[in-house]
Design a protein around this nucleic acid. Structure first.
Length: 426
RNA sequence: GGAAGGUUGGCGGAGUGGUUGAACGCGGCGGUCUUGAAAACCGUUGACUCGAAAGGGUCCGGGGGUUCGAAUCCCUCACCUUCCGCCA
């Protein structure tokens, strides 16, 4: 949620900044007007309450002295009725205002490029290198077939399309990758591991911004009003919802492995081949709670932390800075990491690292006591570190050999009983 | 699932209808002392919100109710603890 004071005091500049993300002026004007109405009602009801409080105090005194309080009580009852009336209207206005504010995305950082879609994103750097080998490159589906590590048809039988089954040495590789990534984050980057619930309530989904706007992308358990998490960001970030942190504890860096569940309602037919876009996948996520003065610096660090995973695996990738229109709803600034998939001949997004400034924290009501004694909102960041299916795709395709085997990166071998290659089935 | 008790500020913990926004302790902040630190002592210290300010309002797990007036009484929901039942 953006700061309503920004709309109050700096309407023009805020509107201009949000226009870069395609926010309609009318929405902002509605919020501004509701805010004005709200403040006027607050003034009215508070005056009456002050009056009532004073009168009640006096009534108490008179009653103690045995005086007559009947008429005063009657008068205050009327005041009470009026207060209730105003408060009802106030509650309605506040509800509308909140709903409106929840539909407004974060204000983009000034330095990010303007654009409505991915075509305006900027390649910041490429890391590692890729040279096509002198044998015919296979895509991950063909490699998976040779290795016998995927079963898509039976995934459809069990659940439906988009729920692949990973088998044997593939499953083992997946498990090794998860453990490797968590160890990188926890042992060398100062993270604390968390194993959170994979199902959360509506308050949590609202805290991180999935609700109310993106309900159709989520799986919902109606009976309990629970939601399957689309990313570990949801439970991990909500860990500190309605919390008061201390300045000396910041930054707090948490990482979690979880499965992620996404309906991908708007993406039917797009890039649905194999493992490229699925409804359930595994991911390791990093979440930072930081001091507001350091958040954009921390974002640069966070990107490097995600990159370290890919570099360690010897993979070629690029770093994109997203333009205003391509960023997630809550982000002020965002980098994507994309792995090269030679078999697909395309770049695959495996990580998105975002700085949310105070946008999430305001929704979450996550504050901290600064060293100057003031209470402030923390800034939150998160980044994938990283998503597994596409990592698996790129790894298979980049590390494939002429004989159909796939070389296992050295850093993973300790997690795979020393195994050096994935071997084709006999 | 059944029964009983509980939920108060950053933390612990008083408080059962009228100067209680809340005693007391811890922690935090400022100071005295000290070469420095610790200890001790003194002072200070809730959040949110309206207001230019003065000042006002709201908040004692969530929601609703009674009352002129509720942390205090009633209803309801959630959570925690203990006991019983069931179960991986």
């Amino acid at each position: 949620m953006i700061d309503i004071k920004k709309l109050r005091d700096e309407f023009e500049t805020t509107a201009a900044a949000l226009a870069r993300r395609g926010v309609a002026l009318a929405t902002l004007e509605k919020a501004r007007d509701l805010d004005a109405r709200r403040r006027s009602l607050v003034g009215e009801t508070e005056n009456l309450k002050a009056q009532r409080n004073a009168a009640s105090k006096a009534i108490g005194k008179i009653a103690k002295e045995g005086g007559d309080i009947a008429s005063a009580k009657e008068e205050m009852r009327k005041v009470g009725d009026r207060i209730a009336e105003i408060d009802r209207e106030l509650a309605a206005v506040e509800h509308d205002l909140r709903e409106t504010l929840l539909m407004i995305p974060n204000i983009p950082a000034p330095e990010i490029p303007t654009g409505m879609d991915s075509s305006a994103n900027v390649v910041v750097r490429k890391v590692g290198e890729w040279k096509d080998p002198d044998f015919k490159i296979l895509d991950h589906m063909a490699i998976g077939e040779k290795l016998g590590i995927f079963d898509f048809p039976r995934g459809v039988k069990l659940t439906g399309t988009g729920f692949p089954i990973i088998l044997g040495q593939g499953a083992k590789l997946q498990r090794a990758l998860i453990q490797y990534m968590l160890d990188v984050h926890c042992q060398t980057q100062g993270y604390t591991e968390m194993l959170p619930p994979f199902v959360v309530n509506s308050d949590s989904m609202t805290g991180t911004g999935q609700l109310p706007k993106f309900a159709e992308d989520l799986y919902h358990c109606q009976i309990d009003d629970f939601w399957l998490i689309p990313t570990a960001e949801v439970p991990v970030t909500n860990y500190f919802r309605d919390d008061m942190l201390q300045a000396k504890d910041l930054p707090i860096k948490l990482t979690a492995y979880t499965p992620c569940f996404r309906r991908e309602a708007g993406s039917a037919g797009k890039m649905t081949r194999g493992m490229l876009r699925v409804h359930q996948f595994d991911k390791v996520e990093m979440v930072n709670f930081v001091h507001p003065d350091t958040s954009f610096q921390q974002l640069e660090i966070l990107v490097k932390e995600a990159e370290a995973v890919l570099t360690g695996l010897g993979l070629h990738f690029r770093v994109l800075q997203l333009c205003s229109g391509d960023m997630g709803f809550s982000a002020a600034k965002c980098y994507d990491l994309e792995l090269w998939a030679p078999g697909e001949q395309q770049w695959l997004e495996v990580s998105s690292c975002s700085c949310f400034t105070d946008y999430q924290a305001r929704r979450l009501n996550c504050r901290f006591k600064d060293s100057d004694g003031k209470t402030k909102l923390v800034h939150t960041l998160n980044g994938s570190g990283v998503a597994l299916p596409r990592l698996m795709v790129a790894l298979l395709e980049q590390h494939q050999n002429a004989d159909g085997s796939v070389t296992i990166p050295e850093v993973l071998r300790p997690y795979m009983n020393g195994q050096e290659k994935l071997l084709p089935k006999a």
